[in-house]
């Protein structure tokens, strides 16, 4: 492998470095209650972006698997979910820590929080379903079907329901979006590059896991 294949991984690293430096030094609006913790936006929110991207990749590869029956597509789908669940855990934990200091409780009754918890259950159910199936082809097919079936409901859960309910999060249920505080766009200039950095890192982790699985799969089929 030449440097050509590594450029986006280096880009991810540079974007994350930029996120740390600009995220801690850059100007932020002085708001009551949140104070300096507003900088958590740069680190907490990208976790969700990354999780969502990975779940999206997973559902795309599940659809691909159903039309191609290529076992590699199934491996991409399951590894995307595996890494996505890790980022979901990070998102929940960082959110709980932040909420504890600003909203007064680690688990305030917030639709976004509950929604992401239920979405986690959905993907854990996907993993349980895979464990329940012994035969490889059947496992790949049936879990792909469940993945495609559950995905639109996850979108309703995480993106449509919170918008119609009262929420502590900005941009939901009558709360103003965070763009209102960020008048000159200086926060967006940090958030979006950092988010891209995390998304690339998530994809990188997924490809690593996928390549290991592929090697295992090849070993397995050769030895039989």
């Amino acid at each position: 492998m030449t440097m050509k294949h590594y450029w986006w991984k280096i880009l991810a690293l540079l974007l994350l470095l930029y996120g740390i430096i600009a995220g801690l030094l850059g100007p932020v609006p002085a708001l009551p209650i949140v104070h300096e913790t507003i900088r958590n936006v740069y680190f907490h929110v990208p976790m969700w972006f990354t999780m969502f991207t990975l779940y999206l990749i997973s559902v795309i590869y599940s659809i691909k698997y159903l039309s191609s029956n290529n076992p590699h597509h199934d491996l991409v789908a399951v590894e995307s979910v595996n890494v996505g669940v890790i980022f979901c855990t990070f998102g929940l934990l960082t959110g709980m820590a932040w909420a504890n200091f600003t909203w007064g409780a680690p688990w305030p009754n917030d639709p976004k929080l509950n929604g992401s918890a239920i979405a986690t259950l959905m993907y854990l159910a996907y993993l349980v379903l895979r464990n329940a199936l012994e035969e490889e082809q059947k496992r790949a097919k049936i879990s792909a079907i469940y993945n495609v079936f559950a995905f639109p409901i996850m979108i309703v859960l995480m993106y449509i329901l919170p918008k119609t309910t009262d929420s502590l999060h900005p941009g939901a249920g009558g709360n103003s979006g965070f763009g209102q505080f960020d008048l000159d766009g200086s926060m967006k200039a940090v958030l979006y590059p950092t988010a891209i950095g995390w998304i690339l890192t998530g994809i990188w982790l997924m490809t690593l896991r996928f390549r290991i699985r592929k090697l295992e799969y090849q070993n397995h089929t050769v030895s039989e």
Binding site: L121, V128, L129, I142, I145, Y146, F149, I153, L157
Partner: peptide, 22 residues
């Protein structure tokens, strides 16, 4: 889906509850 995965009623609950909660 649960029927294809061995008619397991626990599996039915695990698979359907996250979807039915919203």
């Amino acid at each position: 889906i649960a029927a294809k995965a061995g008619n397991n009623s626990t599996l039915m609950a695990v698979l359907s509850f996250p979807i039915i909660i919203p």
